[in-house]
Amino acid sequence: MEWRWDFTFDVVLPRLWEAAGITVYATFASFFLALIGGLVLMLLKTAKNPVVSGIATELIELIRATPLLVLIFFLFFVLPEFGLTLPPLATGILAIAIYNSALMAEVYRAGLQAVPKGQWEAAIALNLSTYKTFRRIIIPQTLPPIVPALGNYLIAIFKETPLLSFVAVAEMMHAAKLIGSEYYRFTEAVTIAGLFFLVMSLVSAQLVRQVETYVKRSIQH
């Protein structure tokens, strides 16, 4: 069976283009949720109370040991039992966000721990307020190692969104599967979807690299 360009341009591209919007939306929504969730998990993990930090540590380990697909199915089937019926897209975004916040918590923690202890002591010695300590001393030193890692998670999340097709979210992979089963032609749809992911992740990897140099330069004056 040969490649059909008319089919590609008339059917595949318009429908995948529509679905690309959902993919990008799901990517950014779950990325921002995971940014916040990761921060919360990190704060819980580094809490003074050993019970709280112990529970947070085990929770992070459990989430990290679970495949994302299992987490998506789990939320998809379990949330309705607790009376919380969300649309598939929201459930999927929530699952990706939870999964990645466990991973991002470690990134935040590593970034904070990379700040030498002397910096904290110096800030106390100079009688800086807590706000000023974070704003002027700690966060500027935490950002350079964190930003590229978080950027890589953005790309990773982007490549995880096809999993949402398992719970019938109308993102790109789902659209490609639908086209394939409607016309019985998988070649064009799946290939174009693959190319789209390839191009998008190469472009965004380049963007992450630029943000990285920008952050480094703006902090080192």
Partner: peptide, 11 residues
């Protein structure tokens, strides 16, 4: 590395 695993499997 650039494409999603699910897309590769499907392909």
């Amino acid at each position: 590395r650039g494409t999603s695993l699910l897309v590769i499997l499907f392909w």
